[in-house]
């Protein structure tokens, strides 16, 4: 899939979303509905026009490519490789979230840092230990200085 195709798809999705929100807004009382109704209506029209315009442009570019007169199109690049790389990177963030969910913020952070530095960087054990100690110190500092809260993990909640 190319970026231009993905963009048309996103635009169409926005159209569906805005139209749904527009329909939903009619269920509210008059005072609550007018602002979201008009905004979602305008957004639906903009999304519809954008989808059509992007599709027309995409077709035009494709026709020119077929006629061996390619015109410059920065979005005509495959996104598969980038998506895979980004998805892998996003998994690290997801891993951190799951670690927090299971063992709480403080322990989850230590687990995440340990795993990240071990598998993603060339840090040795000493550097990893220092990095974790610095972050733990920072968290302790914030906890004492500001009225902050951390989520407790589901495992801790079960055993308490």
């Amino acid at each position: 899939m190319t970026k231009s195709k993905a963009s048309i798809l996103l635009s169409a999705l926005f159209f569906v979303l805005f139209s749904s929100l527009c329909i939903m807004s009619t269920q509210y009382s008059q005072m609550a509905m007018y602002f979201p109704f008009f905004i979602s209506l305008m957004a639906s029209i903009a999304a519809f026009c954008n989808t059509i315009l992007e599709y027309v442009k995409y077709r035009r570019v494709k026709r020119n490519d077929e006629a061996e007169e390619p015109i410059e199109n920065e979005y005509d690049t495959p996104i598969q490789y980038e998506t895979i790389v980004a998805a892998k990177n996003f998994l690290w963030i997801l891993f951190y979230l799951i670690a927090i969910f299971l063992v709480g913020f403080v322990v989850g952070t230590a687990v995440f840092l340990l795993a990240f530095f071990k598998f993603k960087t060339d840090f040795n054990w000493l550097k990893i230990a220092i990095a974790i100690a610095v972050v733990m110190g920072f968290i302790y500092f914030l906890e004492t200085l500001l009225p902050l809260h951390w989520p407790s993990g589901i495992l801790f909640d079960i055993f308490q």
Binding site: F14, L21, S25, A32, M42, A43
Partner: peptide, 27 residues
């Protein structure tokens, strides 16, 4: 059009929750 759509989407997300002019929750 993309920029305007993004702006309007932001306006819509901003309406989530209690309506300022009526005792009602939206979206």
């Amino acid at each position: 059009l993309r920029g305007i759509m993004a702006g309007l989407f932001g306006l819509l997300v901003g309406t989530v929750g209690a309506a300022p002019a009526a005792p009602e929750y939206r979206y």
